[in-house]
Nucleic acid binder design. Structure first.
Lengths: 172, 172
DNA sequence: TACCATAGTTCAATGAACGAACTGAGGGAG
DNA sequence: CTCCCTCAGTTCGTTCATTGAACTATGGTA
């Protein structure tokens, strides 16, 4: 838990949101789930996160209703983690935060750019399409590598994201 | 630092943003600064945060260019912390996250509602004014207590926020 | 039978957060 | 001049979380 006993005392919706997604690693797990990462091992390889922490974070997100844990294979039994509609709605805050980081902390230009699938135009930090003017949901969004991307990593997820990819669609 | 050595390895603007504002308490400090909190003691009383942690977080935010530390009185010497323009741009992610928390984690209805100062209409989770249709910057926003606010706390900041208040204007 | 893959759990060592006490600079009252 | 107060921190021992490596469990494949 992010703020322990202060949860009630704060009486603030931001504090309650941070209880769920404010812990170390959690928002990066959500980001990966938005890209389409679903399996334990793929999160692990892409994030370089300790296994115990990943396990605990996935459980917290499932409990909070952000992720759904479901069996995708019976023999041997295997589970995958998929974003729920509640998780989809984290798209705007995640995008807004990433855009802020892009603008103020990135020297080399954008690492990833997001486009509206149906028209191809870029979307801004408020998820608005430059051409259509509508708020684009994550399901109609495509990620493309940007000029600032270094592409050092060679795990399956990083490799898949070196080409355009539809958000939420399974990776790899 | 939020992710230690993984900062470079991640090659992701969200990860870089989280290096700055992803640590425990940090985003709540930023939220308070957006309300207009400026003095060490006011952050302390409103957040119930250990003094050492607050001190460290304020220093990190100043170093990152989110807050500006400046003298507001010479005898005795006193400093205050004020959001920079870079800090103002965290408004969209902070609001989006708070709205998400409001929608999905709050049983009692909104605790705070945000209005466009110049027209009085509510703004949504993407900081867009319902009437004007424009993206409202934090400086033209007013916070008002919502029906879900419990109002248990009695520190100066909590008391001031029980009536409408213009964002960024000094509290208390 | 031996080996491999996936998805975890366990555990010792390290690091961060917590809360209480302390420091220091400077009023203001008596 | 002395005592007490405020504000803005720092210091420090205890507690809690994170880390990385090793281990467990289930079942498939050679």
């Amino acid at each position: 838990m992010a703020l322990g006993k202060n949860y009630d005392a704060q009486d603030c919706s931001l504090a309650r949101a941070l209880e769920v997604i404010g812990e170390r690693w959690t928002l990066l797990v959500v980001r990966d789930a938005m890209y389409g990462v679903r399996r334990f091992g793929d999160f692990l390889a892409h994030l370089d996160i300790p296994r115990a922490v990943l396990s605990q974070r996935l459980a917290t997100l499932v409990e909070a209703g952000v992720l759904d844990k479901r069996r995708y294979q019976d023999a041997p039994p295997r589970e995958e983690y998929v974003l729920t509609p509640v998780g989809h709605e984290l798209w705007l805050p995640v995008l807004a935060l990433a855009e802020w980081g892009e603008r103020h902390l990135s020297g080399t230009g954008p690492r990833r750019v997001f486009h509206h699938l149906t028209c191809g135009s870029r979307i801004d930090g408020a998820a608005r399409c430059a051409a259509c003017g509508v708020q684009v949901p994550i399901g109609e969004t495509e990620v493309r590598p940007g000029p600032g991307l270094k592409g050092i990593r060679n795990d399956p997820v990083s490799v898949a994201l070196r080409t355009p990819h539809r958000m939420l669609h399974p990776i790899p």
